[in-house]
Amino acid sequence: MLVKSSPHIRDNSSTQKIMLDVILALCPAILASAIIFGLRALLVIAVTVVSCVVFEYLYCRLMKKPNPIADLSAVVTGILLAFNLPSTLPLWMAVIGAFVSIVIAKQLFGGLGHNFANPAIVGRIVLAVSFAGRMTAYAYPEVTNGVAALAGATPLVATRNADLPLLTLFLGTHGGVLGETCAAALLLGGIWLVVRRVISPVIPVTYLATVAVISLLAGQEPLVQLLSGGLMLGAIFMATDYVTSPYTLTGKLVYGLGLGIITCAIRFWATSAEGVSYAILLMNLLVPYINDLTRQKPLGGGKRK
């Protein structure tokens, strides 16, 4: 017979189940990337996932820490990192991205739960800064001659000149990094996460709403802004990372608002076409302060008797 302190029972949630739900939620977008960019997209995803898991395993082996790969968080990071890469990226660059994400951004800070920023975002930014050319060499969906073209601008850049049809933006059959283009698949995944109570819809909704409102005020087409670039991917999958987002309802509102403002500021008034990953990185850094300032008020208002 066991003798233990209360509570004597636990619910059936687990870190592994949460990560599995995230992986499931990413599946529609994985499928979409394979359809839009071809099998090369799947290859990039496979390479980042495998290298993330291997790096995590090796690091923990080396540091004599318990083997954490069963929690599946490295798999999630691997998929998210791949989603931020163009399908044409040389595979060795993808491996470097995985190293930065897992070893530098995650494990050096203490592993799962201790990273200050989203590992996949850090990986993407390091690659974008190091290999700017290859990181923006977007593949375009197979066109009439069946050859994926290596050139040109993403819709965000393009929309400054000419508009793509909204349906194309929604279905993602346009240039971009491999996981960000298909808004439909990403939304499907987001709905799954909300239904399964893995994430609260507050951060994505506030983020998207803020971008829509600022776009309107800035004279941009809100729907085009919402559906282009990495916004959907960032809002649904990257900004909702538990470790690097605030705890409370108020905190999540502030966080979403900040993300929207920074994203629009970068998109409309900076030289860079895309602002989602920098917005998330910047807001990640503010999370400890947001948490401190938006802590919930205990029953009784915390006033002493």
């Binding site: 066991l2 233990k4 004597h8 029972i9 636990r10 949630s13 687990s14 870190t15 949460i18 954490p68 929690d71 968080s73 592993g111 799962l112 739960g113 201790h114 538990y242 470790v243 605030p246 705890y247 409370t248 919930q296 008020k297 205990p298 029953l299």
Partner: peptide
């Protein structure tokens, strides 16, 4: 009755949401 081993905190905030007192 048997509890699974404890893992690393993933800062999901579920304890904060659950606390009936609001701690």
């Amino acid at each position: 009755a048997q509890l699974p081993p404890a893992g690393e905190c993933i800062h999901c905030g579920r304890c904060i949401e659950a606390c009936p007192i609001g701690l």
